[in-house]
Design a protein around this nucleic acid. Structure first.
Lengths: 215, 215
DNA sequence: TGCAACTAACTGACCAGTCAGTTATAAACG
DNA sequence: CGTTTATAACTGACTGGTCAGTTAGTTGCA
């Protein structure tokens, strides 16, 4: 009734060269995450992105090239963010650390965001370059940002002087564990809210577990 | 010269039905780790185990069956261990926690041991059953063991009362992070010794990062 | 009209799984 | 004891299906 039978039906496809690359990358991330890189079929990636398999090859040389482009595209903003927070928050390092923790909790809770590190972990054996790229572009940057903030807090007398690497591990590790629990092992998170997570984390991280403090 | 030319040359293969399954599982773990489950070829697994491809199928129904057998075989001892430590160390929980931490540090440092969780992570999208199995058989067990030890320590007045799940995250997370750093990202570990790792970890974990303790 | 964007049908390589045949080994026999 | 017999263990060539990548031809659009 409502739909007037159009005499010239809509085109079977449209030329959308600008939007394609990003759509293909999103489709690829979804397929790679669900099936794994090898088991994912280029045909399915294409369908999901709304074009044909041949079309994908107009934008990406090969499946592997698509994978690498995907990693690069999804990684860049994260690293950017970490660096920005670190340099911006040098005068109030504790507040900056809290912001970073909250950002980490929120990001790690998003399956789409965690999908990338998950992919990298799975493929690190076969594509060490990708793992190395991820390390230098993301982990090293985040690590440096955290270390500088912690060092600043130590200098201000707000934190004890501890081994910086140990401090970074203690800072990130729990989030990593929670993310694995949720996204990899399919565990139910008792408390959904990232704020609660951050709150509990900081309590343990700052005050420690010990009842009495030993000198 | 030394080798006397034997008139009847050694057989081209031997019947070794007892030893085969384990050898095949070891070979499969190595191949799956290096290439990934999909990219690994059954032919290569077989060669590595010292027999032909057809031979592998005498012991395992399919590639997927091999994968599942592999996970089960490599997982069992770990879970066993965690449970034993937990129940044995109820009277001195702090010592038991230190033992568990050291055990974890040593195990996580071994690429062969960490290969299994690495596989599970990579395959969790396609084989959720495997991830679930790993969770119930390993992570849940370890988690319960830790929580009971921590609760015991709290009861004895040795630890503050904090959210048990947060405490467990803080306990395991850093090891997880270190393992990822080393095995997945190929980062150099500044300090090889697990004892150092445990020492630093406990310092931060028990005393916290804060300079002054707030009530 | 021209051409970039796109499709669909195709090709060639690869590999999990099968199977007909071979060989090591142990047991039965003379 | 050697010799035959029986069979479990094993091999390697083969097959059927799958899928990355290609290409000849079609279509939207300026």
């Amino acid at each position: 009734m409502a739909a007037r039978p159009s005499l010239d039906p809509p085109p079977r496809w449209r030329r959308r060269a600008e939007a394609r690359p990003e759509e293909i990358l999103d489709a690829a991330l979804a397929e790679f995450t669900e099936r794994g890189f090898d088991a994912a079929r280029m045909e399915d990636v294409a369908r999901r992105a709304g074009l044909s398999k041949g079309g994908v090859y107009l934008y990406f040389e090969s499946k592997e090239a698509l994978l690498k482009a995907l990693i690069e595209a999804k990684i860049a903003p994260i690293a950017q963010n970490a660096k920005a927070v670190a340099s911006a928050g040098a005068d109030d390092p504790m507040a900056a650390l809290r912001m970073l923790a909250t950002a980490a909790a929120v990001r790690f809770a998003d399956p789409k965001v965690f999908a990338v590190p998950r992919l990298v972990i799975g493929l690190s054996g076969r594509f060490p370059e990708i793992a190395a790229y991820y390390r230098t572009q993301v982990v090293d940057v985040a690590r440096a940002a955290l270390e500088s903030l912690i060092a600043a807090a130590v200098a201000k007398g707000q934190l004890r002087r501890v081994d910086p690497r140990a401090a970074v591990r203690a800072f990130i590790g729990p989030f990593l564990f929670e993310a694995m629990w949720k996204h990899v092992l399919g565990g139910e998170s008792g408390f959904a809210a990232p704020e609660t997570l951050v709150e509990q984390h900081f309590d343990v991280l700052l005050q420690g577990l010990a009842k009495e403090r030993s000198e």
